[in-house]
Design a protein around this nucleic acid. Sequence first.
DNA 1: GATGAATGAGCATTCATTCAT
DNA 2: AATGAATGAATGCTCATTCAT
Lengths: 200, 200, 200, 200
Amino acid sequence: MTKRQDNALRTRQKLVDTAESLLKSNGFNALCVEDITKAAGVAKGTFYVYFKHKEDIVSEICRGYFKAIEDKINEMKCTNFIEKMSLYLDNFMEAVELYGINICREWIRASIDPKTAPDNTDMSKWQYDVNMLKNILNKAISNKELKKNTPVELLTHIIISELYGMMTCWCMSDGSFEPKEWTCKFSEFQLEKILEDYLI
Amino acid sequence: MTKRQDNALRTRQKLVDTAESLLKSNGFNALCVEDITKAAGVAKGTFYVYFKHKEDIVSEICRGYFKAIEDKINEMKCTNFIEKMSLYLDNFMEAVELYGINICREWIRASIDPKTAPDNTDMSKWQYDVNMLKNILNKAISNKELKKNTPVELLTHIIISELYGMMTCWCMSDGSFEPKEWTCKFSEFQLEKILEDYLI
Amino acid sequence: MTKRQDNALRTRQKLVDTAESLLKSNGFNALCVEDITKAAGVAKGTFYVYFKHKEDIVSEICRGYFKAIEDKINEMKCTNFIEKMSLYLDNFMEAVELYGINICREWIRASIDPKTAPDNTDMSKWQYDVNMLKNILNKAISNKELKKNTPVELLTHIIISELYGMMTCWCMSDGSFEPKEWTCKFSEFQLEKILEDYLI
Amino acid sequence: MTKRQDNALRTRQKLVDTAESLLKSNGFNALCVEDITKAAGVAKGTFYVYFKHKEDIVSEICRGYFKAIEDKINEMKCTNFIEKMSLYLDNFMEAVELYGINICREWIRASIDPKTAPDNTDMSKWQYDVNMLKNILNKAISNKELKKNTPVELLTHIIISELYGMMTCWCMSDGSFEPKEWTCKFSEFQLEKILEDYLI
DNA sequence: GATGAATGAGCATTCATTCAT
DNA sequence: AATGAATGAATGCTCATTCAT
């Protein structure tokens, strides 16, 4: 990597970090290109050297957010299937809370906005999570942890909806609803019941 | 009621209906006062005779949306508690689907937007739903349908999150996710398991 | 006067009083027909029964303001010419201060606005004051209080400008400049010097 | 200065000049951003590149107006104190007349408007003029041109009020009142009388 | 790669005034 | 005389995006 490329990369990262910081502190209503570049100490035009649209940097930030969740989950080491699922849920929500309510709000807002959707050439986060969970369940079937007749689709949708619902409730509740706390309790008290018929 | 008052009421309703229709078809990104009044066949200023802010008409539309859900639920006649809860969930989501994905999106967007929240002097929809479900559960305890040690808070949050999660997933999935269908399946296959320990 | 006419007159006066009160307390930037009628407890349309334009009620209020000044001045009983002029100035400014800075501002604003000027079919307040002072000086010449060669025009303009200047300075100074105090001092220390050459 | 900066400066100046020209010809009631930019041949948004608020360009124009007056006064070369004061007044009013009645009106309007006042973080024009005149008088005392017991405050307020009063009368008189002419006459016939007791 | 001047579509809101009842 | 629903012109300001340098 040349020094020039290196500098460019650093400028780009500075923009992402600055935008993320602004998003965390001020929320999505107050995010504008001018503020990002000013705070990053570069010119307005520089933003468009790295991002075609303003939404792109938001996507990137949210991708970091997904990534953090994924990393958390990939770190998991466990044997028991229930324990694994439980860790999945808890870690997922821990990562969500870590990023803060403003980024979670922005993520939901962008995800439900039909205008921004077409830009996401990648699979949507929702689709991605659905697939990931399906894989986990299917693998568990292969591993003889779950019965063959396990309703994978149904369980996937129920669990993903529970997770996304916790996030939505958090964002709507002005922060008073504790998503991590309730997700943990869900894992602890309900997950086994939901899965018990299908466990081997 | 005089004829004038009657006319005024009709003008107002025309605005609400027009706005709702525009919201249903075009989504919230394309909703502007100009379009509403033009489509309603009145002058722009007339809008502000009836609504102080643009958001106010959206609130009103969403209130209609809540109301439709509530009405559905109040219509319910049933004996068995599981059946009652099941109907609650199914009716809730049926009403949601009836209104369409765009209004659901607008409702979520407005609900998670911290800027619009302060205007809602009334309890938030989320809080309202939480309370309603708590009451249903508490009444069931009084009626000896549920045990005294039923974890009301936990069950409330799990069920409400599941509902809100279904809506969020719908809005994110570009319509491919069928909220009613999955809610019904949740009622059918999982609700009993979640509640079984507490049923008398 | 019939009871109906009497009621009408009272409604009209209520509007004037309310508008004056709003003008005094909030200043001219915040004066709108809606507020006036609401505060007066009548319908918006009622305003236009009595006033063709919004400016008309302002004119009426300012006329009251002039009237108060004029009344003050007409009350004056004195012998000596210097004393008379002195009282004229002091009473003028006392009446101005009594009405408050907001009405003084509105009066200046309306008087210098070329848009509102054409409506004043009557002579302008400025012209009126100039004429009144000219009359006082001319009468003093007739009464042998002032010499025949007194430069009436010049003295009139200097004195009126001093008065109007005091008002303008008051309105510009955010209230810190005391117009009555300085007018009194002007009367006391300078008026005699200005007139001394022409006194008999 | 690079060519780009130079161009920018020229664009900015074009806006100021255009706005001033519109103000001079049409008066302040007809000044809107749209007209300014259209007449200047730039886009509406360009206005906001250089001025945060519409009032800002008006302030700038008025500042030019002050500056012209100040420059005039600073040019003065004279020996005698009376002559100096006389020149001050005459030059002041000459500069005022040069700018035209519409700008004088706008300046008074903006100066008495309590809404625009807070934005002026600088001292107000009135305060500035008061201080300038006080300095002139105090210097004259130091220079033994005026007696030590000269009532500086009083003389300052009387003279400034006379000047501002002349302007106000001009703006009210629909142009028939000649401020320069009367100011000259005031200088010629009255200034000496007002000051005579304090001259050395 | 970086700049920052220029763009211009987009939009909510205000409010004096009218007029049918 | 009184009402109040309806009007619609008027306007400041935002901000993502472009492009010549």
